[in-house]
Design a protein around this nucleic acid. Structure first.
Lengths: 216, 216, 216, 216
DNA sequence: TATGAATGAGATTTCATTCAT
DNA sequence: TATGAATGAAATCTCATTCAT
């Protein structure tokens, strides 16, 4: 009975894990609940015990797996005495690399493809992830300006520009990788290098001993 | 008969137009050919006279409407004596604004959502649009460097960075607009401003001898 | 105009010819009127000028092409002074060989496959061909018995037995030929040989100088 | 659960039975799976649980119901000390009567009508039934000749002649019965009588030295 | 007479969802 | 809790038939 209880508690996770893989591989419409059940090693009927419809399952998958560690980055940013540049070069860039390397990138695709049909899902995602991320980035930029580290730029109003290349890279890998491979990590580094160059107050970047974003 | 001929010649365009609207609104799987036909003001059967399957129709839509004016930008770039900066601020930025303003942005979404299921479609798109666009951007950057207008940067290897914010904005408008409106034109202008700032030769930073922005 | 008139007069035949080939190749249900029209070198609409429905066309095809030369055999039988054996060995056997060699065998298949759905068609065929053929064969048998040429046998009541091997051969060629080729002409000859052997009055066949139906 | 299992095990048979009746009544193309399902008392969808396509169902029907008792006849022929004549008058004639009396005759029609579209089906039928039947009949004839019971005739090479009247009768009943009833059993008996008469050794004709019945 | 664009009923097939066991 | 047989709505695709030109 203990096993049965444990099983029961693990079921939702187990099913969502299987569903994630199926959704990621085939997209929402092409995914059959039969296959999700097979992959999870259970019967189709049991899926319905835990998720009322296919749509609910999909939303649960997105909700569960697409809440990244924005929070931990925020904590670091708030607590640390690091410069804004260091924050961007460190935790922010790190997070972007993580998204590209993990299964999260398939979720981004799913969200783009299916999002328009599920407003509550995108609302949830906006609240949980996007608005916080945007706020965080704005804080970092603002702090950099306040400290005289950065010159004032419109980036403050469009912090999306900081993560735009990550989105691009996700989509590139999805569609174009086979025709034109992309070293996404270096792309992100190049982006951060250029961005910081553009932001530096007084264009005094040369004093920081950092120049030559060119290929080594 | 003349009328019938004219009708026949207009049918494909008419059907594709209707299909584009349906696909854009609902996505591929959720679009019913019945609805495409209704929207085009014809019967379901007639769709099949012009397009053998739903998939063929979809591909035709993408192929027909998603060939942007990369070519005209290339022509300007090649012919003109404009500086690279002027090219980026002018035709390149203009093209990006156009994509965001036109129906093309819905096609981008469709391509992202359905591309993985239709490799030939993405191959076509890569060849017709992406590879040319990438080449064009590289040329502009290279020319700028050759003329001493830009300092050498890794942007040359990642020209995707130039249009990344456009992709982002497309997706933002698709998913987040209702929660957080975005002035996409200003975002693009901000991006171009920052980018050119980072590229400009004559900034002190370019003269300083050192490195550090490369991958640590 | 003369040409147009001539064309008009030839149209039905031309269409039926094309239809026969399509029906024979694909069967009734699988035949598309589009293909019939293409094969006839005309437009689909024109088929409907001459034949009200696909079914009518089918019936016309069967009616037109499946009326064999039973009549000519009957004439010979009635007029000639030939023995019954000579009639069977000559015109009757010849007719059977003709059916096997000509396109008529495909019509037999069509009639078998589609007949049950078209009672009027089989009625027509029964009246025009079958009943006459049966009557003819009965006459030949009866005459043979009356003349003392044949002994009385139940063949009189089952003249179908005379042409049964022809039917068999048609079907064999249709289905089994690729697995097990059949020399249909020799089969028919063997059949006729055996049959006449069985019929001969007094079993005096040995006097006729004819024996040895075995393989030479 | 026991009931459910039993149901599941019976479903295929139940569906094929219903399908046989529909196919027999209307032919392949005219049969709607909806009707098959109704006749079986189940829903349309369930048919697809057991048979992947309409064609698979059709083939399964043919395969399942069209394997006659050729084997049992062969066993009798091999084991018994019966004369060839007795075998033909007994088991062989009996089998032919059975085919005519049973549902098999509708399958013969289906095979004729649809066989050309399904080469694998006719191949199966040839291997399972026809080639064995032909071999069996050849053995019987050969044995009769070896024992001096029969005179040598070309029947050995065309054993199809033995069952040709059965095929004929099947088709006759299908198409002509309403216009001209046929006592198929008596027809088969008449055929066997004539055939054996023609085969019997000791008939004078067999001794006469001459030829002539071969192809002239 | 001749065309062929257009229609729409109908068939196969899929699969999310239900429910008896 | 767990199964999986069963349902039935819905979508794609076909093609005989019509009809304006």
């Amino acid at each position: 009975m203990a096993r049965s209880v444990r099983r029961k508690e693990q079921r939702p996770e187990q099913i969502m894990q299987a569903a994630l893989e199926e959704f990621a591989a085939k997209g929402y419409a092409e995914t059959r609940l039969d296959d999700v059940a097979s992959r999870a090693g259970i019967s189709k009927g049991l899926v319905y015990v835990y998720f009322r419809t296919k749509e609910e399952l999909f939303k649960a998958v997105i909700r569960t797996f697409l809440v990244p560690r924005v929070e931990s980055v925020r904590a670091q940013a708030a607590a640390s005495e690091l410069s804004s540049e260091a924050l961007i070069r460190g935790p922010v860039l790190g997070l972007m690399k993580q998204v590209l390397g993990s299964r999260m990138h398939t979720l981004v695709r799913l969200l783009i493809a299916e999002g328009p049909k599920h407003p509550d899902l995108t609302a949830f995602y906006y609240e949980q992830v996007v608005s916080r991320g945007i706020g965080l980035l704005q804080d970092i930029v603002d702090r950099g300006v306040a400290r005289g580290e950065f010159r004032p730029t419109p980036l403050r109003d469009f912090p999306q520009l900081i993560i735009a290349p990550m989105i691009m890279a996700v989509i590139w890998k999805l569609l174009m990788e086979r025709h034109h491979p992309l070293d996404a990590e270096r792309l992100l580094e190049a982006h951060v290098g250029l961005l910081l160059h553009a932001l530096r107050a007084g264009d005094v970047s040369s004093t920081g001993g950092a120049a030559g974003e060119e290929r080594a």
